[in-house]
Amino acid sequence: MTVTKTLAESYVVDEADACSGKRFCSGLHSAKKVTAETTPHTGQKPESVVTLTDLPPLLLREIFQHMHLYQRLYYRTVCKDWKDLLDSRSLREKHALALLPIAVGSSVGTRDYACEMSKDCGRPWCRSLWHATEMVWLVDQVYMLNERENHQKELTELKTEVEKFVSCYEYMAFSGRLDEMLTKHVDPPKTTSVPCKIVAENHESFVV
């Protein structure tokens, strides 16, 4: 085994020498190097080892904040705790408040923004999917933000952006998902919400 001292006073072993066990592995096997602490990585979980399940919800939530919407939706199926956390209104709301101005910004168009944000995903269909999901999600936020006076301008612009985007071919596959998400994933709209009717290129219409 090749062992060298590293910056963080741990030991780096060649990947080929590293544990091939999947359970409790470091998750870093895809990297060129895997670092083990002074005790060998045996694939077994020592009693004192900290795992993701030991983290307080606030830290787990912060981890999720580094994920895109579709990734969060996907990981809702891990367990009930994760689903509750990922569905939590505060997580989504904070994110939306931060990203709305960018999404509707004049200098960075929504499409460019979506493509830029999806660059870390290797799925070939990611860009169109991510864009579509993000737009659906932003529409989702309309309900939450509708009563906030200081966001009315952004919401108006967002609706315009959505209308533009609905004409995109890629979005057609997801138009049916919009109703599903709005009815199943979102809290009921407040009574003051103003419905917005969107007509797609194929004349299919739906109300958000």
Partner: peptide, 10 residues
């Protein structure tokens, strides 16, 4: 689930 020993409680 396997990495972290998380039970599928659905």
């Amino acid at each position: 689930r396997e990495m972290y020993g998380i039970e599928n409680d659905f």
